[in-house]
């Protein structure tokens, strides 16, 4: 009698546990799998006049976190971004910066609503991004590719 009970209870718990775990795993993995994307990572792009050829990942995160204001040559840094829900912005955050759009947004909100910083300039399309990068000496942003003849250049992450 007691032998039967001991066997039945763990078995029952196992099956239930497995079902719950399977459902949880599906819930957690579904968005990850859905977002899997093998596209090339976006390029970090600056104005052509910028002498910078490379930037460290740490500095890049600080620049896009709006906590670094000046290039080493003294030019003010102007960060240009696309809206949070644009694919290129999400890819840039995840693949290049290694953080998530909601984290950047929270960091900007904290600066803007406490008066200790400013928000980046937001543009709606990649074309506008290119225009802003071409027309502003200290601008930094991202593009899926650099068109021929554009007055911008991509910089390496070290």
């Amino acid at each position: 009698m007691s032998w039967g009970r001991i066997q039945r209870i763990p078995g029952c718990v196992d099956v239930k546990c497995l079902r719950v775990l399977a459902v949880l795993a599906l819930l957690i993995c579904a968005p990850i799998c859905a977002n899997a994307d093998s596209d090339q990572a976006p390029l970090v792009v600056v104005n052509q006049s910028n002498p910078q050829e490379s930037i460290s990942l740490g500095s890049l995160r600080t620049v896009f976190g709006m906590r670094l204001r000046t290039w080493p040559n003294g030019t003010p840094i102007k960060v240009v971004v696309l809206p949070d829900n644009k694919k290129l912005h999400i890819e840039f955050c995840k693949k290049v910066l290694g953080i998530f759009p909601h984290q950047l947004r929270w960091a900007w909100d904290r600066l803007v609503y406490s008066g200790t910083g400013q928000a980046p300039q937001q543009v709606s399309t990649e074309e506008q991004m290119l225009e802003a990068l071409e027309s502003t000496p200290g601008a930094i942003g991202y593009l899926s590719q650099v068109p021929d003849g554009a007055k911008v250049k991509s910089i390496r992450i070290r």
Binding site: R69, V112, Y113, G115, T116, Q118
Partner: peptide
């Protein structure tokens, strides 16, 4: 409700109010 203004006359100076 809130509104804030921030102004950066120089790169090392920011004036803000809400």
């Amino acid at each position: 409700a809130g509104v804030n203004v921030s102004y950066r006359p120089r790169n090392d100076l920011q004036l803000s109010g809400q």
